[in-house]
Design a protein around this nucleic acid. Structure first.
Length: 278
DNA sequence: AGCCAGGCTAAGA
DNA sequence: TCTTAGCATGGC
């Protein structure tokens, strides 16, 4: 068991903001599968407790929760914005995770034209059917299936999951990754623009999904995913209720939020999901 | 019951 | 470059 002293960190906001799909609430804390390990995490004040099986290192925990980044320093410039200020205050401590690129990519392929609760169900069922069991006392915990595993499947095999039209997007993308035609590791090393362009070549991956992967798996803080909620937020809070084209919204966000665009997006998203429902 | 969801693709202006 | 239809499915 690990105990970490954490500052500027809120576990609930971080895990419930919808960036990751495999965490579920337990009596006290959350249970999820990270890589090949089951994690049980809880927070009391500035103490983060992590029980994992097989055990994860402190470095892995720090990496996953982005605990080494200086959140205060990142958010301070954003707080000058009168729209973001209350959102940042309310969700203070929300950190952008560093998820596994393949799991993140596959999960967000499932996200298109879908709602959060069903995305979670899809990801959970996919893992249950095609992942491998993990954790001795985790009971019914499964890893997220590898690209290789999924590449061996047909849409028919996915039927029990009921992913709808997204089935072939997932399988074709899995094939490209498994066959080495698409190098997820390389995305760490190339420029953001290049990385996005590369992601856009994958079936089922458009601007929004690409931005999510860049932000939630690769820590590219200049990525600004625009979904229906963020579009609504921008329109209502920045554009006086008027529509803007996707490209204009992107340009606006990049210019306004710079290298903290990813965090601006997440706090906006959390804020509108809570206050702008319907 | 019926609307809508962390969009993408293809086609057409 | 922008707009639009169609999409499988189930949550609410």
């Amino acid at each position: 068991m690990l105990r970490l002293h954490v500052t500027d960190f809120n576990l609930q906001h971080t895990l419930e903001c919808g960036q990751a799909f495999r965490w579920r609430r337990e009596e006290k804390g959350y249970v999820g599968v990270v890589g090949d390990s089951v994690w049980k995490v809880s927070q009391k004040d500035s103490t983060l407790t992590v029980e994992s099986d097989p055990p994860a290192s402190e470095e892995e925990v720090i990496h996953y929760f982005s605990l080494s980044s200086d959140l205060r320093k990142i958010l301070t410039p954003l707080q000058g914005d009168s729209v973001l200020a209350p959102a940042i205050k309310e969700f203070w401590g929300l950190r952008i995770l560093r998820q596994d690129p393949w799991e993140c990519l596959a999960s967000y392929i499932f996200s298109s034209f879908n709602n959060v609760s069903r995305i979670s169900t899809l990801v959970e069922n996919l893992s249950g059917c095609f992942g491998t069991p993990v954790g001795v006392n985790g009971l019914g915990q499964y890893t997220f299936p590898t690209a290789e595993r999924l590449a061996s499947l047909t849409p028919k095999d996915l039927r029990p999951i009921r992913p709808g039209f997204r089935d072939r997007y997932l399988l074709e993308t899995a094939r490209e990754v498994a066959e080495g035609k698409f190098d997820l590791e390389k995305l760490h090393r190339i420029k953001a623009e290049e990385a996005k362009k590369t992601l856009l070549t994958l079936p089922g991956v458009g601007e929004k999904v690409a931005d999510c992967v860049l932000l939630f798996a690769y820590g590219r803080m200049d990525a600004f995913p625009i979904d229906v909620w963020v579009e609504r937020a921008l329109r209502k809070l920045y554009f006086h209720g008027r529509r803007r084209t996707f490209r204009k919204m992107q340009h606006f966000a990049r210019k306004k939020f710079r290298g903290a665009a990813g965090y601006a997006q997440e706090y906006l998203y959390a804020y509108v999901r809570k206050h702008l429902e319907t």
